[in-house]
Each structure stands twice: as C-alpha cells, then as structure tokens.
Amino acid sequence: MSTALKRFNGGARAALTTLLLISILLPPVAQPVRAQGGFNLPDGFVQEEVVVGLKLPTSFAIAPDGRIFIAEKAGRVRVFHKGELLAEPFIDISGEVNDYGSRGLLGIAVDPAWPRRPYVYLAFVYDPPEIKDRNKSGARVSRVVRLTADSKDLNKALPDSGVVLVGKNSIARYVGNPDQGDAEPFSCLDENKRPVRDCIANEGDAHTVNMVTFGPDGALYVAVGDGIVNSRGNPRALDIDSLNGKILRVDPDTGKGLRSNPFFDGDPDSNRSKVFALGLRNPFRITVDPRNGRVIIGEVGNQKWEEINIAEPGANFGWPCYEGPEEAASYADCRPYRSGELAVVAPTFAYTHTAQPARGAAIGGDLYLGRTFPPMYRGAYFYHDYNGGVTN
C-alpha cells in the first residue's frame, strides 16, 4: 500500500464556515473539511502532493535544512531531500518494531539544532528479541531512541548509533503476557505490582508511545497512551509512577527527567520526575506551543467523547475516571476526584461520537503561526478526526 504526504497552501480568500478551527482560547463552531481522497478546501486554498511512494507513513519531521524525515509504520525512516524521495532509508529498524494492528514506528523528531546536533528521535513499539517470535498481538513494550546521522551523509544514520532515551527497561523480562494482548499479568510491574522504572507497557494493539517533539525550551516531549484496552489496566494513566497515559518531558541527551518538571522528586531517573501531564487515554498527536510552552493534545476517546486538551505543567485530565466532561470510571478509585481532593482539568474542546459526519478519533494536528493563510486562520489549531475523515 503506497500513500502520499500532502499539504495545502492558503491563498488570499477563505470561507470561515468551511473549516472547523480550535482557537487556543475559544473554540468556534463551524463545518469541517472533508478528507476523502483529498481535502475539500475553502476557496483560495490549493492542495499539493509533496511526497509519493511511501508505505504506511505515520509521522514526519522537517529538519532546519529542509529535508523531511518520514517514519513508516513497519520501522523504516525515509528521507525526502532536494525534491526527491531517496531510495535508501535513513535507517531500517523493522527487526525491532512490532507493527501489529495500530502498533509500529509512530513518532519521529529532528533535533532543532540540526545539523550541529545531527540527531533523529524515534518512538516505537519494541519487539524484544527473546519474544519477537511469540504471538505478535501479545503484550509488548515501547521505547524512544536517538540516532546520529553520518556527518559525511546526513541522509544515513551511523550504524549502531542508537541510544535508548526512554524505555531502557522496556525489555522481555517486564513483558507481562507476550502471548495474549490486553490480558493479565500486566507489563512493566515488579514483584510488588508497582511500576518498573523506565518501562513503557503495551498490552493493547493501540494506545502506544505515539509521538516525540521538541518544545521551545529544548526539552523532548513524549506522548504515551495507556497502552491497554482492558479496563483493569486503565488506572495506570493516573498513577504518577507509571509512564503510561502521560506526556513526558525529558532531556534529549540523557532521557532523564528535568528539574523544572512538575513532579520532579530529586531523582531524574524516577518515572514521576519525567511526567509533565497525566490522566490520558491515547494522546495520539501533541503540539508544543512555541509562544508559551503549553502542550496541545489530540486525545482519542473511548465510548462517547473526543477531546482537545491544553496541558500546563502537572495537568491531570482524569482518564479513566473522566471522559470528556463526564464521569467514566471503570476499575479505578475516583473518589479523590469526585470529592475535589484531586483536581481534573476539563477538555478545552470536546465533542461526542454522535456528531455528523460520524466521528470517533481526534488524532490531533498542529498550530498555524505563519502569515500565508488569511488572518482568520492565524493562531488557529487544526486537527483531524480519523473516523470521520475530516480535518478541523
């Protein structure tokens, strides 16, 4: 299956009612752009095909010199450079990636100081060698790694340059049930059933480590789903000592938690020292606002609600005790939230699955801070709903 990377450029005119935008402060109500075989764009916008010949591309990152690094689901990183999709990949780690279902290589980032810092960062579901031949749908774990580009050819990664930044203990030893997904025993737990340090669980075939990106502060942000559909495991999204169901904020050189993080406990290697925000089900795509460092999250919902969230340091969005504006507890102790002892941050914008066209997966998007689009779009947040096939 080959797919393409596309973009759309704005002209001088646009109709407000043809695009649903999320303002950072106030969400207006309007109609979406349909995305079936392409975008039905507002007047004055043009869709362009940028890269063709890709196989299940999941994410891309544009380097400061203009080359585009594109992650393919199975584990290859392709490079688009000087108008050409290069035949040889930057790297192929398909032997390490579990790409069953919605798993795979899902996140990629380029160091903002490229090429002085010639680093590319990848987020993927890891297949430990000891269990890679077991049931592919069984439990696995996830990792974030940093690769170094060859100074003689920046389109190639140096062999054996990979450094595990997050998920050093995402290894076979801590995989709970490699033969059955969404089943106990759960992963990344020690003998006392407490979260293992630096281990990201992935029982389900979705809700994985989803994205890596940089903030204006130079920190590396990592979006991690709760890693499971089985409701008995959902509460780890609220456990500050678990890396699942979180936005992490780490040092891009070491993977350690930063002293400025909201839950830093004096030990930069502890799980809680890496947490920026928590209580998330499946933060598929995030955007760090370069103007203020706030994290905008496309949070894929469960039974009823989809969310766009804005995270300040320490924000708790309440999953699984809350979905959208409603209580949605299952196998979780939600009493501290109901009593007000612990605060829950409400979604900035939420919509139900009954919205038309039928929607069900707010996978996130990006801010527009350029000057090409008409003024009404500047500072707006564009997001996509996968089920509805609409860009908003």
Rank of each mutant, 00 (worst) to 15 (best):
S2Q: 15
S2G: 11
T3L: 08
L5T: 05
N9P: 00
S23E: 11
P28L: 12
Q31G: 06
A35E: 07
G37Q: 13
G38Y: 02
V52Q: 15
K55V: 09
P57T: 04
T58P: 07
A61K: 03
P64K: 06
I68Y: 10
I68A: 09
G83F: 08
A87Y: 12
E88R: 14
I91T: 14
I93A: 01
Y100G: 04
A109R: 04
A109K: 04
W114T: 06
R116L: 07
Y126F: 15
I131M: 08
G138L: 05
A149K: 06
L154C: 12
N155P: 10
P159G: 06
P159Y: 06
V163L: 12
V166W: 11
G167Y: 00
G167W: 07
N169Y: 01
S170P: 03
Q180L: 11
P185Y: 02
C188N: 05
V196D: 13
D198S: 02
I200H: 00
N202Y: 02
A206V: 10
H207A: 10
N210P: 01
N210D: 14
M211C: 03
Y221K: 00
A223R: 11
V224W: 08
G227V: 05
S231Q: 14
R236S: 04
A237C: 07
K246R: 02
L248A: 02
V250F: 04
V250I: 12
D253H: 13
T254V: 11
D267G: 08
N282H: 07
F284I: 11
N292I: 09
N292D: 15
G293K: 06
V295G: 08
V295H: 11
I296Q: 06
W305H: 04
E307S: 05
P313K: 01
A315C: 13
F317Q: 09
W319P: 12
Y322F: 15
E326R: 13
S330V: 10
A332S: 14
C334R: 07
R335Y: 00
P336T: 00
G340E: 06
V345L: 11
A346I: 12
Y351R: 00
G360E: 00
L367E: 08
L367Y: 01
Y368I: 03
Y368C: 00
Y368M: 02
A380D: 09
T391S: 14
N392A: 10
